[in-house]
């Protein structure tokens, strides 16, 4: 990612696939968490612009489409600092399992799929 490059959030970040360092899909970006700015009050000239803190996924998708906001404890976050490439998909710097956001995949793996015979075998 080149410094100085310009990126439009809705077009190039939101609704894009997030893949890990091995190219495995993890989540789609449902929303972005940006550092706080004063709300309902005038911004003094020279206020520093906010930065993207996290990619959000999970319950934020439902509320983005239908309205409302899920409680912050339910937000699945991936810190922006893990993003190494913004292209047709967003690439992260580590494998999927090292991120909190992959918990549903790991849960289904451990509790359902892993329990069915052959779940851990390569297809033959």
């Amino acid at each position: 990612m080149r410094a100085g490059r310009v990126v439009d959030a809705e077009f190039q970040l939101i609704d894009r696939q997030v893949i890990d360092s091995d190219g495995v899909p993890i989540v789609a970006v449902d929303d972005l968490e940006v550092s706080d700015v004063p709300w309902n009050e005038d911004l003094p000239r020279g206020t520093e612009a906010p930065v993207v803190e996290n990619l959000l996924s999970g319950p934020t998708l439902g509320t983005r489409i239908f309205g409302g906001r899920p409680p912050e404890s339910r937000w699945q976050r991936i810190a922006w600092k893990h993003v190494v490439d913004v292209g047709t998909a967003l690439t992260l710097d580590a494998p999927a399992d090292s991120f909190d956001a992959s918990w549903t995949e790991r849960w289904v793996r451990n509790h359902v799929v892993g329990k069915i015979p052959g779940g851990h075998h390569d297809p033959e």
Partner: peptide
Amino acid sequence: DVRFRLEGPPSASRARMA
């Protein structure tokens, strides 16, 4: 849409609202 500019050395580690 909201536009961000990538900044920070050497690989852009921050995306600041532009």
